[in-house]
Design a protein around this nucleic acid. Structure first.
Lengths: 346, 346
DNA sequence: TGGCGGCCTGTTAACGTCAACAGGTACAGT
DNA sequence: ACTGTACCTGTTGACGTTAACAGGCCGCCA
């Protein structure tokens, strides 16, 4: 199945080539190459002549030719799904910045929809892409049974172990523990949880860690409310929790759901934090301006993005297959959505 | 499996080549090429043999070689700043999807910071990138005096005219007019405006259109409150408006600022929409779950992204320099944050 | 004096692909 | 039989770059 080939058109002249520069500067192509790549052993005068010739014709090295010859593309592929989610976006931003600063280009490979087939299609495409390595930004449950072309360095972000690739991620478990313990420390008997989608490892980890924290403190574990990261899911969960007088503390798996939850609580007349305390996860920009300002777990997406790029480039350059895990520590940001419970006369 | 490359090759073996497939299938390289590109005139049996050989060695055409040969990279560059803003993210998402479906790869070229120098640096990089065309996602004021390599097709998104490139954008002016007229229609005497950053063309257009709409209706034009898209700026503006009893209707240049504004109004005890009506811009996912749900202007980032890709590819394939403007019509989404003013006994 | 090691530059031959051309074969129409 | 046309396949060369090699020059040391 080939893509309909739009071949046939005249080959567009791309611009001046090394040979053109060489001719003008009166040197060999090799010398131009040396100047372009900052090799040693080029006479200062020669270099000057070459550089001025380059400027004259506006020479830009042709990446395709360079890649063909050297076998490296100076480019890394990022497989991403749902660019619009808070975490993905910020991480991608950081990845792009880090890659650019290291002289790598970013090849964005979107997974068009959530089906296994779409993921597989994206990975199949991969072998054809001109990249030296891959960063996977897809929640890994969807990756089950999908093979990455072998021999291509890979780093996985925002997901969890079980894969034979280096992993860089925020420490979801720690974050969830911080959130839960904060609420317990305030004096709440227990904490309810609005979870992320089941297919997401991050969501799963937050859930598990929340549960383990409650158990470690000998507290009852209330039933989990299912969610899918969306504000709407948080709203639904909020409606279900609002009428339950026993609910005094809720930990939502992300900030967006917390927003929906807050809205539902407002609607039902339950005050935050007086009646119910709420903690989110992500610390998105808006969280500080929720009503009330949201206590949440701050994740350093920047650090994760940079870490992923570093790990990948290390792998590319060494050619060795590492498999370590780098967890970035999140921190709790306490704002106005949490407070001690009102004593409702036992 | 070991390739008999006796030379100590530092060049990483990329995978099977056309020649490998040809050898196994017992045909020439050209025939493999023909099969790979779906050319006519290949015997069914031969094609089958080639395909099976391809499968056997896991053949993937080498993009670099292909690009070198054909002069096209099947890749488009996207220059973007602040990935994390709502509009940019969604548009990028749509661009990536559209490009992928058309068989183009996406090369992400981040502008690292807001300075002219950074923009210039990104554009300089450009000439070196392996792309057939560029989509510019940067608010254009920052582009003043920065030159795009000539001969490279360009499409500008999310900004305004004055450039000699095709433009695809949401119709900011229409959106702002819809928002303003909605409030006037409800019976408000006039509408206040919290603007976006001065350097942004989109912000500027919304501002201008708001003003023109008021003037067209013969209403007084209140002083503009400066903003920068951020929730915090909306909050500041809200604090300043809250104590002014005359303020009954506010139009913020985006939803995030509306969120901050709502928060400030809550804090100061002014009820929305009873005391003050609020309209935002963007219709971000969360807007429907603000407290109260936000009336806002819905932008079709999808359509913009797709349109940009289409326009660019048309330009790439025709080789001609178009210069048309495609405006996507936004629509007003009325929710609970707007209502007629309370009659405060004149 | 010869030899050696740092400098500087040029020549050659690929990297993998595909356009252009150059054959072929088969079968129809004349 | 001869020509034409549709079908199928192989050979050649070039896209722009760089690794590997092959010199050249110069000065220094033995």
């Amino acid at each position: 199945m080939a893509t309909d080939s739009t071949a046939g058109a005249p080959v567009p002249r791309r611009g001046a080539s090394q040979a053109d520069v060489a001719r003008i500067a009166g040197v060999s192509g090799q010398t131009v190459s040396r100047v372009a790549n900052g090799a040693r052993y080029v006479d200062a005068a020669t270099r000057e002549r070459v550089l001025s010739a380059m400027r004259e014709v506006g020479y830009r090295p042709n990446r395709a030719a360079r890649a063909l010859r050297s076998g490296r593309f100076q480019s890394i592929g990022v497989i991403a799904f749902e660019l619009s989610s808070v975490g993905t976006t910020h991480t991608l931003d950081a990845i792009a910045a880090a890659a650019t600063q290291t002289g790598y280009a970013i090849n964005l490979l979107p997974v068009l929809d959530a089906t296994q087939d779409a993921v597989r299609a994206a990975f199949d495409q991969l072998g054809e892409q001109a990249v030296d390595g891959i960063i996977i930004l897809v929640e890994t449950h969807r990756l089950d049974g999908v093979a990455v072309p072998e021999g291509l360095p890979v780093v996985v972000v925002d997901s969890s172990a079980e894969y034979d690739y280096p992993i860089v991620d925020n420490d979801q478990a720690l974050g969830a523990r911080l959130a839960t313990e904060h609420l317990l420390d305030l004096g709440h008997e227990t904490v309810w949880h609005v979870a992320g989608p089941e297919l997401s490892y991050s969501a799963r980890r937050r859930w598990t860690s929340w549960q383990q924290t409650l158990e470690a403190h000998g507290r009852p574990v209330p039933p989990v409310l299912p969610g899918d990261w969306s504000t709407g899911a948080g709203y639904e969960a909020g409606l279900r929790l609002a009428d339950n007088e026993e609910v005094t503390a809720v930990f939502t798996a992300n900030d967006q759901m917390a927003l929906g939850l807050l809205r539902a609580l407002h609607e039902r007349g339950r005050r935050v934090p007086d009646d119910v305390s709420v903690v989110g996860f992500d610390d998105m920009e808006e969280a500080a301006y929720f009503w009330p300002p949201l206590t949440t777990v701050h994740q350093s997406f920047d650090e994760v993005g940079r870490g992923a790029v570093d790990a990948l480039i290390r792998e590319i350059q060494s050619g060795e297959h590492e498999h370590q895990e780098a967890l970035v520590r999140p921190r709790l940001v306490v704002r106005a959505s949490t407070a001690p419970p009102r004593r409702t006369t036992a």
